[in-house]
């Protein structure tokens, strides 16, 4: 038996799927019509928020009492509020606060949840036991209640509130990452790497994190939706963004004051919140379906 025979023996590579993982993800994601719609919507919202001064038709703060409670029309597409401020422009600027706040919360949750999750999943034993116990304890606190408590101790401030939301959300990311890390740890390629003298930190970085990425992405999308909703709730109660600045929650809250005179004032901010939260959730589901394992047949 010579080596040459072996060369021959594997020349016919199984022609199965030669597409890369990215190509496979794109192929599968393309079939998710709703998720693509959600992504497009979110991108439009994000771009308008970033370029708000150029996109918004009016200055969101300029008042015009003559236009108080103006209905939707050519001047004010979505109408105006009690002070005659353009609702559309306020919503566009409000998106800045809402999305930024959501991003803050999710960043905090990720920074806390992911590294601890990877370490707990890989290390097992006492570290895992303690981390899981803390996570369960934090998870039992209702997010909004903790946020309100922190605001009560400090002062009404959106950043503090969103850090609180992030802390309460961190255990969810921790759990997802930990269980993904545990299942990766059982794979023999981790043993193979250890046997080749690769250190544990390198293993975490090169083998575990990439495998954790897919479920994490799904969770982050869902977390963003949750954070947008939480921000709206806190600001609605007047404990987040302080007027005259306005997030969607603030706009919604102010709209309720004169609900009987102009019900449209809560319809539009409400719709903005609803659609954005929904979009994050639909996107999360779509990512889940296109990143998850493909069911293969023999």
């Amino acid at each position: 038996m010579t080596i040459a025979d072996h060369d021959m023996s594997s020349t016919a590579v199984e022609s199965a799927t030669t597409e890369s993982r990215r190509a496979r993800f794109l192929r599968r994601f393309r079939r998710q019509g709703w998720a693509i719609g959600a992504l497009v919507f979110l991108v439009i919202v994000a771009i308008s928020a970033i370029f708000a001064p150029w996109v918004a038709p009016h200055d969101p703060l300029s008042q015009s009492l003559t236009d108080s409670f103006a209905g939707p029309g050519s001047e004010y597409w979505l109408g105006a509020d009690r002070l005659g401020r353009d609702t559309l422009s306020r919503l566009i600027f409000g998106a800045r606060y809402s999305l930024l706040a959501a991003a803050q919360a999710v960043l905090v949750a990720t920074v806390l949840g992911v590294p601890i999750g990877v370490i707990a999943g890989l290390a097992r034993g006492k570290i895992d036991a303690v981390a899981s116990l803390v996570a369960d304890a934090v998870l039992s606190i209702p997010a909004i209640v903790l946020a309100l408590a922190i605001i009560g101790v400090l002062r009404p401030n959106l950043t503090n509130a969103m850090i609180a939301i992030g802390i309460v959300y961190a255990p969810r990311l921790f759990r997802v990452v930990r269980s993904a890390a545990i299942s990766v740890r059982e794979e023999t390629y981790i043993d193979a790497a250890r046997a080749s003298g690769v250190g544990m930190l390198t293993i975490a970085r090169t083998h575990v994190i990439p495998n954790v990425l897919s479920p994490l992405l799904v969770q982050i999308s869902l977390a963003l939706g949750f954070a947008v909703l939480a921000e709206a709730g806190i600001s609605f109660l007047g404990l987040g963004v302080q007027p005259p600045d306005a997030s969607w929650g603030v706009i919604l809250g102010q709209g309720t004051v004169k609900l009987e005179e102009q019900p449209l004032l809560i319809l539009f901010p409400g719709a903005a919140i609803l659609l954005t939260v929904l979009a994050f959730n639909v996107l999360g589901d779509g990512l889940n379906d296109s990143l998850g394992r493909e069911i293969r047949r023999e």
Partner: peptide, 27 residues
């Protein structure tokens, strides 16, 4: 060095074959 039974689980699906083979060298 070691070669495991299950070739399915002993190679990281996220890695290119070239990187898998070079992993010990990189270490």
């Amino acid at each position: 060095q070691i070669v495991f039974q299950d070739p399915q689980s002993s190679l990281d699906p996220n890695w290119l074959v070239r990187d898998i083979i070079a992993e010990p060298l990189r270490a």
